[in-house]
Nucleic acid binder design. Structure first.
Lengths: 71, 71
DNA sequence: GTGTGACTTCTAGTCCGTT
DNA sequence: AAACGGACTAGAAGTCACA
């Protein structure tokens, strides 16, 4: 599967797990709410720096966001 | 550790494991040799699309490139 | 075979608003 | 709360000449 798709799905999954809205999550990650929205809809590629910001905000290990079936 | 640092180190490690030069590897990945060079020296951020290209060229699972001590 | 600075083109990422 | 669009700026992609 495509890495962007996997990443998008995992962001959405972990974000919902934490009960965060896109808006609240975007603020935690220091990113823009429309950007998070675009990521979850697979409309964008992402730079590694922001991958890390997102992982931090979700409080998960970075590599978990690239595993297809990471629970 | 910083994700770019981890990624860089892993690219270098897996590339050397395969006995590929930066030049040969760059060609496999469809990227420029100086670009690979810059990545390995942590001089660049990278978008997910190229992360996948690199993982493909190295024939490793993408997530392995983000694990600090991934053999 | 690799490191490096500089350069142009293209896209990541922000910010406004509307649905 | 979230999808979506338009316009804008910062920064990544991609290449080169030279060391």
């Amino acid at each position: 599967m495509d890495i962007i798709k996997v990443f998008s799905k995992n962001v959405k999954k972990y974000r919902n797990k934490k009960g965060l809205s896109q808006e609240a999550f975007a603020e935690r990650a220091g990113l823009h709410r429309t950007y998070i929205s675009a990521i979850e809809r697979e409309k964008r590629s992402i730079a590694l720096e922001n991958v890390q910001k997102i992982a931090d905000a979700l409080e998960v290990e970075t590599y978990l966001l690239f595993i297809e079936d990471s629970g």
